[in-house]
Simulated assay, not measured.
Amino acid sequence: MEEAPSAADGCGNERDRQRAQVLDRLSFLAAHPDQAEVVEHGAGCDPASGQVFASREYRWASLDARRVITFYQGLAAHDGWQPWPVSSGPGTTGDKVDPAAQGLGAFLCFTKQVGASPAFMELYFQDSSVHGPLGDVYDVVAWWPRPREPSGC
């Protein structure tokens, strides 16, 4: 019998709760450029879809987007994450991904086998006008697609 979703993490069972913690410990989420400050951190399950995820939101007083992109592209390559074509995004030509161009738009997308299932990782930049003098914000999110859910970003 499935447990009711926890108010804290939205997960309906212990298996999904543990999977969220596996994602939360991935170095891609924990590592960040020195200038970035963690402002929000979460792991759990989306209450609407049940999707297992982990995420970090970072603030950087004077964001250098190219430096952020380069940092995460290097980390992804070192940890075995592969670029994933972004639907209708820059850097995609059919099934091929141009890693140099992928991050020049709104986000990066990567995939990697984590345990028995492919996981996805996304880096995206928020609209800087929202945060004003507090600095620019970017997010890093990892998730496992639910059964019968399309893969990718």
Rank of each mutant, 00 (worst) to 15 (best):
V39P: 00
Q113S: 08
A106F: 07
G44W: 06
H131F: 15
A61R: 12
T70W: 10
Q82Y: 03
S117I: 11
V52D: 15
Y72D: 03
A76N: 02
Q126P: 02
V38N: 00
V68K: 01
D64A: 04
E40V: 06
P99N: 07
D79I: 01
G132K: 13
P133Q: 10
A116N: 11
C109S: 15
M121D: 01
W84C: 01
A48P: 05
R67M: 06
T93E: 10
A116L: 11
C45E: 09
V130P: 02
S62Y: 15
L63F: 01
V97I: 07
S55P: 00
G105Q: 08
R56C: 02
T93M: 03
S62M: 11
S62E: 13
C45V: 08
R66C: 04
A65S: 12
W60C: 05
A106G: 09
V52Y: 13
V114L: 13
Y58H: 08
F71R: 07
S62G: 05
G105N: 09
H131Y: 14
E37P: 01
Y58Q: 05
P90S: 05
V39D: 05
Q73E: 11
A76S: 00
P133K: 13
H131R: 12
M121P: 01
Q113D: 07
G50H: 13
G105K: 13
L108K: 12
C109F: 07
G91S: 12
E122M: 09
S128T: 09
D64M: 03
S87Y: 11
C45N: 14
K96Q: 13
P83L: 00
C109W: 08
V52W: 03
V86N: 14
F107Y: 07
R59Y: 07
A119K: 13
A106R: 15
T93G: 13
A54C: 06
D98E: 10
T111V: 12
P85L: 06
H41E: 05
G50D: 09
G105E: 05
A65D: 06
F53I: 11
Q51N: 11
D64T: 02
A106V: 09
Q102P: 07
Q126F: 15
C109I: 08
S55N: 03
G115V: 09
G89R: 12
Q102D: 11
L63V: 05
C45T: 08
G42E: 07
D79E: 14
T111H: 15
A106P: 06
A119L: 10
L63A: 04
A116R: 15
F71C: 01
G105M: 04
A61V: 00
A106D: 12
E37V: 14
Q102I: 07
D95V: 12
G42T: 09
A61G: 02
Y58M: 10
L108G: 06
Q82V: 06
L63D: 11
D64H: 02
Q113M: 13
W84L: 02
H41A: 14
S62F: 04
M121A: 14
G91C: 03
I69M: 02
H41M: 09
Y72N: 02
A119W: 12
